[in-house]
Design a protein around this nucleic acid. Structure first.
Lengths: 240, 240
DNA sequence: CATCGCTAGGTTGTCTGACAACAGGAGGCA
DNA sequence: TGCCTCCTGTTGTCAGACAACCTAGCGATG
C-alpha cells in the first residue's frame, strides 16, 4: 500500500458513515439527528471530530444545522441519483442505482495531444497522451459516450496499452495519480463531436468537460462525456 | 433587519473572507496558505474556528488540506465563472462577471399549480401559486429564460402583484422565506417548452430545474431556467 | 560520490473540558 | 388569555495539549 492520505482520517470515516446512513434514509427529511455529544459517544470519538464530520455533511447539503436546535436531515437525502457534488466514477454511480454497468472501448492509443487537450492539461501542444474512447452502458443500454485523455508522463514507464480496462479512476489509481478533485464545465450538446458514428448525431446530450487534479494540483486527466438526455439524472444540492 | 441566523457565525465570517481572498487570487494555485495558528491570530479567533472555516473552503474545492503539510490553493480559484456550488441569483452571477444584468417579466400572475409544480413543491394539485416568467439579459443580450413558481401561502397576505421585480431570492427574502438550499436537476433541452415564441425553439439550452428550500426544509419555490448554450458558462468543482 | 536512515522542526488531526449564545418549553403571574 | 421569566438542551467558540504526519537536513555507510 502506498500510504494513501486522506482516507484514514477519523473525521472522514465518521462523515462517510453519516452520509451513508442519511442516504439510506435512516432519518426522514426534517427529522433531527442525535446531538453532537451523543454522536461522539456512539462513534467513540471526540465532539470536535464529530463536528468536523457534520460540517462536511452540511456542506454537501445533506443536513442543516441550526444553533441551539440541532442538526436536521434535508430532502436531499432522497436524491440518490447521480450526485454531482461527489466525484465518483460513472460506473460507481450506475452501481449505486442498482443497475449493471458496462463499457466497451472504441479506441485505446498513444497519440499527440490536441491544442484543446494540451490547454486543459497544461501540456505543450503535441505532447504524448493516452487517448481512450468508449461507450458506457447500464443494463446493456448505452447511457453515455466518453473521451478520456491522460498525459503519458502520468502513467508508469512500463505501461501496456493492452492492460487498459475498467474506469478512468481505476487506471489513475493504479499509477499513483489519485484524482481528488475535478473542474467541471457543463454544456448542452448534440452528438456530432463524438466521432464514431453509431450514436444519434441529432440527439440531445448533457456534456461534462472535466479536468481532474491530484492532491498537488497536477492535472492528471481531461475527459469529455456525453450523457444521453433522459437516460441519466444529474442532481446537485446547492447551499447558500 | 430580521435577525437572520447563520450570517453572524464567526466561522462563517472567516470562511467568507477566505473565499473572497482566494477568488481574488491572493494565493496562486498550489501556493500554501498561512498555517492555522497564524490565521487564527490574524482573524483574532481560536484555531477551532479557523479550522471550521477551512473545512468549508475545502468542501467547495477552493483549497486542499494535507496532513503535516498545510492548506494549498487549488486551480479552482481561477474558475470564477458561474459556480454551481454556490447558490446565488443569476443576476448576482452576472454582476460578478462584470456584466450588466437585466430582466424583463413576461408573466406575473396568480394561478393554479400544475401537477408538475405541485409535485415539486409538495402541494395539492391546483393550489394557488405565483407564476413569473422572464428573460434574463447580460449587457442587453438574452442569456436565459426562466419560469418561477412560488406557493401563494409562502407570500404575505397583502402581497401585491405590481410590486414584483428583481430576483427570485429578493422576492423570497422580502417575505421571510429565506432560501438556503436547492435541489437541482440538470438537463439538455431545446427551447420548445419556454412558451412565448421569441426564443429559437431549436437552439440548445442547459436546463436547470430547481426546487428551493428554507432552513426548515419547506419548499418555497420551483424554478426552471433555460440557459442558452455558449452564453453562460457553468463550472463546478467536484471533490472526492 | 551516492544512498540510506535518523533527527529536528513545523504542520494538521484529535482530544479534553469549559463557557457563551441561542431556541424552545414549562410554569408563574397579571 | 396573554405575557414574562426561568430552566434545559442544543450548537458555537475558546484554550491548551498531544499525536500523526511530512519535509529538509545531516551524518553514517557503502
Amino acid at each position: 500500500m502506498s500510504g494513501r492520505s486522506g482516507i484514514a482520517k477519523l473525521s472522514r470515516t465518521v462523515a462517510d458513515d453519516l452520509r451513508r446512513r442519511l442516504e439510506d434514509g435512516e432519518w426522514s427529511p426534517s427529522e433531527r439527528l442525535p446531538g453532537e455529544h451523543e454522536l461522539a459517544a456512539h462513534y467513540g470519538v471526540s465532539r470536535a471530530t464529530v463536528r468536523t464530520a457534520l460540517r462536511a455533511v452540511d456542506a454537501r447539503g445533506l443536513t442543516v444545522t441550526l444553533h441551539g436546535l440541532g442538526t436536521f436531515a434535508t430532502v436531499a437525502t432522497r436524491a440518490v441519483a447521480a450526485d454531482l457534488h461527489r466525484l465518483e466514477s460513472i460506473s460507481a454511480t450506475i452501481v449505486r442505482l442498482d443497475r449493471q454497468p458496462g463499457a466497451s472501448f472504441r479506441t485505446i492509443a498513444i497519440r499527440d495531444a490536441t491544442a484543446r487537450e494540451a490547454a486543459a492539461l497544461d501540456l505543450v501542444s503535441g505532447a504524448p497522451v493516452l487517448s481512450t474512447r468508449r461507450e458506457i452502458t447500464a443494463d446493456g443500454e448505452i447511457v453515455a459516450y466518453s473521451h478520456e485523455t491522460i498525459p503519458r508522463h502520468v502513467l508508469a514507464e512500463d505501461f501496456d496499452l493492452l492492460t487498459v480496462s475498467g474506469s478512468l479512476f481505476g487506471l489513475l489509481d493504479a499509477h499513483g495519480a489519485y484524482a481528488t478533485s475535478a473542474l467541471t464545465a457543463i454544456h448542452a450538446s448534440t452528438g456530432d463531436e463524438i466521432g464514431w458514428g453509431d450514436e444519434a448525431p441529432d440527439a440531445l446530450y448533457v456534456l461534462l468537460e472535466q479536468t481532474h487534479f491530484d492532491a498537488k494540483n497536477r492535472a492528471v486527466a481531461f475527459s469529455r462525456t456525453w450523457f444521453i438526455e433522459g437516460r441519466f439524472q444529474f442532481n446537485l444540492v446547492r447551499v447558500r
